[in-house]
Every structure is written in C-alpha cells, then in structure tokens.
Amino acid sequence: MNIVVCVKYVPDAQGDRGFEADNTTDREAVDGLLSELDEYAVEEALKLVEAGEGEVTVLTMGPEDAVAAVKKSLQMGAHKGVVVTDEAIAGSDSVATSLVLAEAIKKIGEEAPVDLVLTGLASTDGVMSVVPAMLAERLGLPQVTFASELTVEGSTVRIRRDDETASETIESSLPAVVSVTDQINEPRYPSFKGIMAAKKKPVETWGLADLGVDASQVGLDAAWSRVVEVSARPPRTAGEVVTDEGDGGSKLAEFLASRKFV
C-alpha cells in the first residue's frame, strides 16, 4: 500500500506567535517544526506499511525551511519526501494550499498509484481542519476524517470516529483521504538509527511549474479570503486571587452570585 502523508511546517505553538506587516503568519520570529498533530498521521502510515508492504511518502508545501518537517518524518521512518516550495506560494490560503497539494499527490501517483492520503486533524497554526476535505473534493476521492482508529482490509478503509453524542464506524473504498486524531496512536521518537538512515533518503523539491500550477492561482494576491486587520488581544487583566483559608468555596460561590451566575 502506498501512502502519502501531508504534513505542515508550523511556528512552534509554545512560542510567541504573530503576524508580518502584510498580515500573513510570521514564520521567522518563532522556530518552525513539524506540526505536532501530523506526527500521528506519520505514525499511522508507518504502522500500516510495516504490517504489510508499500511506501510512505511525506509531502509538504511551504518555505524552503519546511524541509525540516519532511526530515523529521523521514527520521521516524517514512521512505521519501517531497517539498513543494516556490516564492509565489507565500500567503496562500487553504483553497490554494489544497490545489498545490492535490497536484503534487497526482504527480506522486504517476510513479506508483496512491492508495491512501493521510493527514493530521488540523495544523497547529491555522487550525481550520479543512484541507483534507478540500483534497478529497479536488481529487474526487471519498473522505473519512477524525479517525481515532483505522483499519484497512483489502480495498476498504474503516475508521472509528467519536464525538460528544456517539461513536461511529465509517467505511469507504480506497483510495481515500483520511485524517487521524491525536487519540489514534503514540508517535515514535526518531531512533539514532532512524536519524542516520534519514540522511540517505530521497527528498525531491518541486516548484509550481513542476505541477502545472500557475503562480496567479496561489499566494497572497490570489487568496479568496484575505486578512485585512490583525490586533493582539489585550492581555486579560488578572482578577482577584484568594487563598483558601477554609472559606474559599463560599467566596467562590459569592463571586459567582455577584456575577449573576447563581
């Protein structure tokens, strides 16, 4: 089974994230890394391939530095990587991102058919959770998303999805686009052997021209939704903090009553 895992290089969520003058995400001030939620998709792909056969290709789109996200995935055990980078893609919205990734997946599929496209449940910067559905739409594939369990039998993929009210089993034929949650597995840490092996694994770098995508279809100027203003939320002014001296609960109830919650 050949799997393409889409990953994103994001500013570390622990850092003090912000914006550039053109209202795009500042990708310089805070160190970048493989989006934590994508590690679950890489891990699940490795498990599937290790239980059978096939290859895991890790795909990302971003600035040149984004290769770091691919390298981390290769250290975990993925077989090869593809980085789509081009000056024109800076500032792309989710619509343009899905276009570039879909074309890259088609190109990867020219070598050997892709059975499964795996993603995390969201990126930790944009947190939209829409790219998997957009990929499915563009590739004409079924989508089964937010999987907390995943099994493949023959050409059928089956997942479990849990929400507040129910636990559902969802089935689809392959090929399909599947997103996984952080409940599905425990991503492995790259071993020393994995880190050494990754140095020899192939990483291809593609530009928009390699994918037949015109520069006018992507980037900030082509974005169908654009940010016109960003403002830092005023920090919450810390309110009153009391130490419990036997009456903390009563004081808490009093505060809630004073705010009309009781």
């Binding site: 309110g239 903090v241 009391v242 130490t243 419990d244 903390g248 609960g249 808490l252 809630l256």
Partner: peptide
C-alpha cells in the same frame, strides 16, 4: 491559569468545590 482569571482560589479543589457547590 491564574494569569487569566477574573477570580481564582488557591486551594484544594476537593474542599473548595464541594463548599462552593453547597453554597450555590
């Protein structure tokens, strides 16, 4: 979390919460 709060109680939730519940 106390940097965000409008009201905070430094204490053991196992005594503070039941007392608040009873009072409410």
């Amino acid at each position: 979390i106390f940097e965000l709060v409008d009201y905070g109680v430094v204490g053991d939730l196992f005594t503070v919460l039941p007392q608040a519940t009873e009072e409410i």
